[in-house]
Computed example of a mutant assay.
Amino acid sequence: MSAPRTFRIAAIPADGVGAEVVAAGRAVLDALAQSSGGAWTFDWTEFPWGCGYYEKTGRMMDEDGLKILEGFDAIYFGAVGWPSVPDHVSLWGLRLRICQNFDQWANVRPVHFHPGVTSPLRKADDTALDWVVVRENSEGEYAGLGGRNLSGRGPGNEVALQTSLFTERGCERIIRFAFDLARTRPRRKVSSVTKSNAQQYGMVLWDEVFARVAEDYPDVETESVLVDAMSAKFVLHPEELSVVVASNLNADILSDLGSALAGSLGLAASANLNPQRRFPSMFEPVHGSAPDIAGLGLANPIGAIGSAALMLDHFGLADEAARVRKAIERTTASGVLTRDVGGTAGTDEVVAAVIEHLA
């Protein structure tokens, strides 16, 4: 018998309910590994980074944290943020530091409607809805360019500049990623989202690159939609969507809207990918740290478990990823739901049900 394939995973629970949902996902993955017959396993290393670490050290992660993480096959992340630390400090000090330095330029956020979960969208009652938001994750509105100036002129005179960055290379690689993903889906369609009527430089460049790349994919339907119109389309005509590709900010907002339509942000999974695999990719639920329910065992672990399935896909374990997704479906369909989606189950109950349904 050959030696088991071992995946080295860096676990960063970070803040609030992050600890609970990362533990939930780990339990599901370890149960799956145990059923592999020794074919593969996980080697976990957990790091205490986050707002609590910041309050002790003045840093969100170790100074050499990126160097440490480079040696792992993937990163499994919880949630970042706590009331005692400004959000821009916590986000830029940990999550964005990892994403940007590891060039995790493709953020994949599926919008999936689970059986047994009531959607606020009436159309979901009798229409099959399922799409994925592809978010440019390295530049755009979150490039971190700009500054605050002229404060020396006295109160009321300070100026803040926040500059978006759009490069032809950055636009092309995320748009091609979206087209390649569309070729794997039942409906081969890519919807590009910009606001190029008002943002006449960066987003016009995006539009031009999208039109050029589309010529290489004659088998894929395309449309270009302004972000305000796409927000309406998410609600009014979501059945027309398959792959939605957008800039960092626009895709961030639209994916949250999609998850809310599916029932809860607690259901939403995501993958921050470095497709070239020069650096480890990071997998995390979309929801925040939820300080109001942290430590109470009420957090919805479905987003984190779905993110674990995306990690399995990344490792080439497509059948195992499908097993996890099927177990999630069976769990929600059986009525084992947390409070955010109308149920009464706690985090541990959902985890136990998912593991039971892995068989």
Rank of each mutant, 00 (worst) to 15 (best):
V28K: 02
F7S: 05
R122I: 04
I9A: 02
A214S: 15
P285N: 05
V341A: 06
R176P: 05
G71D: 13
R188N: 04
Q199L: 15
P218Q: 10
H88G: 03
A290I: 02
G116L: 04
Y142T: 05
R278A: 12
W82T: 00
H287T: 07
D313Q: 12
R26Q: 14
P301C: 05
V159Y: 11
R185Q: 10
L165D: 03
D87A: 14
V227Y: 01
P275R: 09
G156C: 10
E63C: 02
P285V: 03
V225Q: 11
V235W: 12
L32F: 02
T338F: 08
A39K: 11
I12D: 04
G16R: 05
S307K: 06
V235C: 11
V80D: 01
S90I: 00
A124K: 06
L205D: 07
T41I: 01
P275C: 10
C171Y: 05
E240K: 12
V245P: 06
L312C: 10
I175W: 01
K233T: 13
Q162P: 00
H114T: 02
W92N: 14
W92E: 09
N250E: 08
R8Q: 15
G78I: 09
N107Q: 09
C51K: 00
Y201F: 12
I75N: 01
A327Y: 02
F234M: 15
A333R: 11
S35F: 05
R135F: 08
M311D: 06
P301G: 14
T331N: 02
A352R: 12
D15F: 03
S264F: 11
S90R: 01
G116H: 07
G152P: 03
D228R: 02
F283M: 04
K56V: 00
Q104M: 15
G81W: 13
A19Q: 11
V245E: 01
R185P: 07
F234N: 03
S224C: 14
G306E: 04
E20V: 13
Q100L: 15
D219V: 14
D256K: 09
L29Y: 06
G147L: 08
G38P: 06
L94T: 00
W206V: 09
F113V: 04
R323Y: 10
S196N: 15
F279I: 01
A260T: 13
G50N: 00
A271Y: 11
A333G: 09
A178E: 01
G303P: 12
G18A: 12
F77L: 13
W40E: 05
V21W: 04
A268M: 03
M203H: 11
A251Y: 04
P4A: 07
I75E: 02
P120Y: 01
R26I: 13
L265T: 08
T344V: 10
L337F: 05
A229W: 06
Y53L: 00
L129R: 14
P48G: 05
G144F: 08
S259H: 08
G335K: 13
S264V: 08
V85H: 00
Y76Q: 03
G266P: 12
G58A: 08
G156W: 14
C51R: 00
Q199N: 05
Q276S: 15
E55V: 00
S242R: 02
L317G: 09
R278K: 15
V80F: 06
E168S: 15
I302Q: 03
F7K: 06
S247W: 01
V235H: 11
A128T: 11
V225E: 14
A23H: 07
G303N: 08
A106S: 14
V341E: 07
